[in-house]
């Protein structure tokens, strides 16, 4: 039976693995972390319908019943291709495969790179990922001193659409995540005043625009302007400055908490992996796809496929779609060989 290696045990990797196993291939998933599920397992609830992310992750994990098999805490550090066969090495162990799927996902933008936003400097500047953690833990956000914040600002596009930090692309999911999180904060702390500082609200998916409208109905304030700099006030409040571009006036306000909507960056280590496979990153550092329309999982090297957020920012829906499309393409490839 032909073997497929899936590198990365996030939603994309798990979905593709299960589809390929059902097609009758022997599938092995390699996950560098100690648990499967990737970033999604760290989120609390998902947009647009606020389903608990644990449901999604658990269902995907339930397919791991021997085939597909998964190796946890296993980072592939070397890959070689010989006569259409791949040899993957991890900790001196060698695995063989007829096809490889890269599903290494993304990494969150390191928010401290936007120094003027004060992450890591001020107490109450957090990232959207940390807010998800707070939801998971308490069901509501908490300030450093343990209090509930009464006035929050969500800052869109942190590490997205920003050439200053070499992330010129849109991370796609942050707008809708911000709106989702704003609604959740409002529900958890009804008296909270919430502001979203956006440049464009890119609500591209089904139900996203509805979520935006729901946020408006719930009294979330939207300010069109990018944060320029933050400074700390007495009592660890944060003063933020932006331009209210709709009225062409500088705007400043003090808030209890600033949430930075961190974007998606290429995962560390993917560079070396794809270089070993003979691939190059695209200009943004993600895995280069050769046919964006008719075969969006195909790479330059035969037998190597890529799906999910390793090819660029993606939401879960698109990642699952890409995973299935990869399964079909791998099937076609292995049958024509």
């Amino acid at each position: 039976m032909k073997k497929v290696a899936v590198i990365g045990g996030g939603v994309t990797g798990l979905e593709a693995a299960s589809q390929l196993a059902q097609m009758g291939y022997t599938v092995t998933v390699f996950e560098k972390n100690s648990a499967a599920g990737g970033h999604v397992s760290k989120w609390d609830r998902l947009f647009p319908n606020r389903r608990h992310s644990i449901e999604v992750v658990n269902e995907l994990k339930s397919y791991l019943n021997g085939n597909p098999a998964i190796y946890l805490s296993t980072a592939i550090n070397k890959v070689t291709k010989k006569d259409n066969r791949f040899q993957l090495e991890a900790y001196n162990q060698v695995f063989e495969a007829d096809a490889v799927l890269i599903a290494t996902g993304f990494e969150l933008f390191p928010a401290e790179r936007k120094e003027e936003y004060g992450y890591g400097i001020y107490d109450n500047v957090i990232t959207s990922a940390e807010l998800e953690g707070m939801f998971k833990e308490n069901g509501y956000p908490v300030k450093r001193n343990g209090d509930k914040p009464k006035r929050l600002a969500f800052i869109h596009c942190v590490g997205s659409r920003d050439e200053k930090v070499k992330r010129p692309y849109c991370s796609k999911v942050c707008c809708v995540t911000a709106v989702k999180q704003a609604i959740e904060v409002k529900e958890a702390i009804p008296e909270a005043e919430i502001f979203c500082l956006y440049m464009d609200l890119r609500m591209f998916g089904p139900g996203y625009e509805d979520l935006y409208k729901e946020a408006q109905q719930k009294g979330i304030n939207f300010i069109r302007g990018r944060l320029s700099e933050a400074s700390e006030l007495e009592g660890s409040r944060v003063l933020i400055k932006t331009e209210d571009t709709l009225s062409s006036k500088p705007l400043k306000m003090s808030v209890d908490m600033v949430v930075l909507m961190v974007g998606m960056s290429p995962a560390q280590g993917t560079d070396e992996l794809i270089a070993a496979l003979g691939l190059q990153p695209n200009k943004d550092g993600f895995v280069e796809i050769t046919d964006y329309h008719l075969n969006p999982v195909k790479t330059k090297v035969d037998g190597v496929f890529a799906a999910g957020a390793c090819t660029g920012p993606n939401n879960i829906t698109d990642s699952i779609n890409a995973a299935r499309s990869a399964a079909v393409e791998i099937h076609k490839y292995l049958n024509n060989k």
Partner: peptide
Amino acid sequence: GHLTPSVIK
């Protein structure tokens, strides 16, 4: 200097 708050701090 205002763009490097950690220097001020």
